[in-house]
Design a protein around this nucleic acid. Structure first.
Length: 271
DNA sequence: GAAGACCTGCTA
DNA sequence: TAGCAGGTCTTC
């Protein structure tokens, strides 16, 4: 579930909780595939007794740089989350110095922890992070014009721009009044400008609101403190099929675009 | 592109 | 019980 704003929220809260600077005393891997291709034993041995130096985010990756020189790269995929308290579905637990423990929770078991010598091996496959200065209007416009693909799957492609997922892609397209199936090279300058700004905007507001949690169940995204993300109230398109558009009152449609649930206003967002 | 795989749990 | 879910990877 986590996209850029949710991962950024987690990184900030882990720093606020003082996880940086702590030594990893012990490691418990409850679902070995989490650390594949390493075995649980090798992974644990490699990181034990090193200190977590810095926690940061790139795209949807959460990185922990270690005093050993290696880096743990966590991808939460659909359902990963962190907590400072134990709970159901904890797939990996780090016991840290001074009595702190870090619980990695993941009901669907899709999330992955990679231990790497050089994060660039993975990060170099990503496009620019959507909230950095490297993601420029010029780069975005040029890339969209060079391709001939539907706009929604294109902005979801992490090798083009890193950070957007299904929620914020639908939100950015709604915000810029662009139909999700428009071909990328059919967008004019004004539309590209609007979409570029909308991508930055929806992600920034998402971060400010500590991410998006949908529904009321327990399988939704939770932040490190166990709180639901406050961005749900701000969502304009995602999950609102059948409800009135907040701009024009037309009933929003829900369809599938490139096999992903897609929500849009058939009136504001014309083909 | 599309479809299947990886997984569990909630909703209709 | 079937269908669907905030992601990505592999194999057509």
């Amino acid at each position: 579930m986590p996209e850029l704003p949710e991962v950024e929220t987690i990184a900030r809260q882990l720093r606020a909780r003082g996880v940086e600077g702590r030594e990893i005393l012990s490691v418990k891997v409850n679902w070995p595939r989490t650390v594949a291709p390493l075995t649980a034993a090798v992974f644990s041995r490699q990181i034990r007794e090193s200190t977590i130096e810095q926690i940061y985010r790139v795209g949807k990756w959460l990185l922990f740089s270690l005093s050993s020189g290696q880096t743990i790269m966590v991808h939460l995929r659909m359902a990963g989350s962190f907590s400072m308290e134990p709970g159901a579905h904890d797939r990996l637990v780090l016991k840290l110095s001074d009595g702190l423990s870090l619980y990695y929770r993941d009901t669907r078991k899709f999330g992955r922890w990679r231990l790497v010598d050089d994060p660039e091996v993975i990060l170099s496959k990503l496009g620019p992070d959507a909230l950095t200065r490297k993601f420029t209007r010029a780069y975005f416009s040029e890339t969209m014009r060079q391709r001939h693909r539907m706009i929604k799957p294109l902005i979801l492609d992490q090798s083009i721009v890193a950070g957007l997922g299904n929620i914020y892609a639908d939100e950015a397209l709604w915000e810029s009044k662009i139909h999700p199936e428009r071909l990328s090279d059919s967008l004019n300058d004004a539309e590209l400008e609007k979409l570029f700004k909308a991508i930055k905007h929806v992600l920034r507001v998402g971060v400010k609101n500590r991410g998006t949690s949908l529904g009321d169940g327990k399988t939704n995204y939770r932040d490190v403190e166990g709180e639901a993300g406050g961005h749900r109230a701000e969502v304009k398109a995602y999950g609102r099929g059948g409800q009135p558009c907040k701009r024009c009152k037309t009933v929003l449609e829900k369809t599938a675009v490139a096999q992903r649930g897609t929500h849009f206003c058939p009136s504001c967002q014309q083909r």
